[in-house]
Amino acid sequence: MSYRVQVRVMPRGGLLDPQGQAVEHALSALGFPDASAVRVGRAIELEVAAESRREAEARVRQMCDKLLANPVTEDYLLEVGES
C-alpha cells in the first residue's frame, strides 16, 4: 500500500515567530486588522509505502524526529490518507 502523508511543521508555541509577526503586520496594513496570532510553519507532503496506515504513520514520525522537524524548536502534526 502507498499512503499519502501530509506533515505540518510549526514553530513551537511560546517561541518568537518573527515571520508570523511580519505577516500579521502586513495583513493589518492590507485592511485585515482582525487577523491575530499568525504563525508561519511548513507543510510537507510525501508518499510512503507501508503495510498499514499505522505503519505509515510510525515511519513518517521517525522521519519527522530525524529530519523533517527540529525537536528543539518545532512541533509537527501528521495526516495520513490513502493515495
Binding site: P11, L15, L16, P18, Q19, A22, N70, V72, T73
Partner: peptide, 17 residues
C-alpha cells in the same frame, strides 16, 4: 553542529527578520 546534536540548541531566523 546544532542540527547534528554536537552542540545543544538551535539557530532560528533573526528576530528582526
Amino acid at each position: 553542529l546544532c542540527e547534528a546534536h554536537l552542540l545543544p540548541g538551535a539557530l532560528l531566523r533573526n528576530a528582526g527578520l
